[in-house]
Amino acid sequence: MKLGYHVGYWSSGPTPGALEAITEADRLGFDSVWSAEAYGSDAFTPLAWWGSATERVKLGTNIVQMSARTPTATAMSALTMDHLSGGRFVLGLGASGPQVVEGWYGQPYPKPLARTREYVEIVRRVLAREAPVTFDGQFYQLPHPGGAKLGKPLKSTVHPLRADLPIYLAAEGPKNVALAAEICDGWLPLFFSPKSDAFYRAALEEGFAREGARRGFADFEVPASAPVIVHDDVEEAAALIKPSLALYIGGMGAKDANFHHDVFVRMGYEDVAGKVQELYLSGRKQEAAAAIPTALVEDISLIGPPSKIREELAEWDKTVVTTLLVRGDAAALRKIADVLS
């Protein structure tokens, strides 16, 4: 299994020590470095700025929110990044959730799978550069049919470095995972657990079996974000992760539309997820974190002494995951690389 480094999105400002960690990941032989965006920092700019100091690692977005940009704008950024990095860029896309899509970007959220299908198709047409781009979809039309009625089909002035630049899709539900397998080159899971491997494997197989599917298990990438904390005390390590989990399980999205919450329900933690959500939405965030059992943390992470992590890594090696995306500063990356190598 390959290793990748996930910088994540910023909180109140730039991630401290990010440049040092990214260059250390490059030096240590990590396969990839990933950025993210929510409703603060964007995904492309930090990746370009810090990634310019690297020489070998792939540079990926995990994820670019599709509602933030038109498909052609995303394609422009992707082909630009690919040229500047010498063919090391990976475009990771995601639909995000209704609160961000409608509240921050002012775009409609319904039918995210159908929107995704159209979005990816337009990006691929731009990158292929075979003809001026036209599209007559339910959600996207090129040229725009209204306005000044002066729009005409255009073709990128820049010739893409790679017409087949890889596109990965972030997905949590089975239908979206199957869509990733059908139309993309990789799937970006969140809160993956080896215990859920059969569930996701079946969703991927459904997508691979569809007519026109691009790939199969042999050439499909699955970089999974997973907390890895090398620590003698498992409970103390778990305590470092629980507040973030409480936010995702309890506070992301709306009460009845939280896809992260649903992941843990499918994992068998319905009662826990319900309690965490109730506590978090009532403002009792510390209690919400405390309500998360360490066993749940261990299901989606690798924490504890080196021997325990190495033993549990064997279970991850049996799954569909091809790359483990870890976080931390440069020192943490060195420790993780030593344990997982």
Rank of each mutant, 00 (worst) to 15 (best):
A178W: 01
A178V: 00
A178H: 02
L179Q: 01
L179W: 00
L179Y: 00
A180F: 01
A180L: 03
E182W: 01
I183W: 00
C184D: 01
C184E: 02
D185S: 02
D185Y: 04
L188P: 04
P189N: 04
L190C: 11
L190H: 14
F192S: 09
F192V: 08
S193E: 02
P194I: 04
P194K: 06
P194C: 05
P194A: 04
P194W: 04
K195R: 14
S196Q: 11
S196L: 14
A198N: 13
A198T: 12
F199G: 11
F199D: 15
Y200R: 06
R201H: 10
R201I: 05
R201Q: 09
A202T: 10
A202H: 13
A202V: 09
A202D: 11
A203N: 05
E205W: 06
E206I: 04
G207A: 13
F208Y: 13
F208G: 10
F208K: 06
F208M: 12
R210T: 04
R210D: 04
E211W: 08
E211V: 08
E211I: 08
E211L: 13
G212A: 12
G212R: 09
G212F: 09
A213H: 08
A213P: 13
R214D: 13
R215L: 12
R215G: 10
R215F: 14
G216F: 14
G216M: 10
G216D: 15
F217T: 13
F217P: 09
A218E: 15
A218C: 08
A218W: 07
A218D: 15
D219F: 15
D219C: 12
F220A: 13
F220I: 15
F220V: 07
F220L: 12
E221Q: 13
E221G: 12
E221I: 11
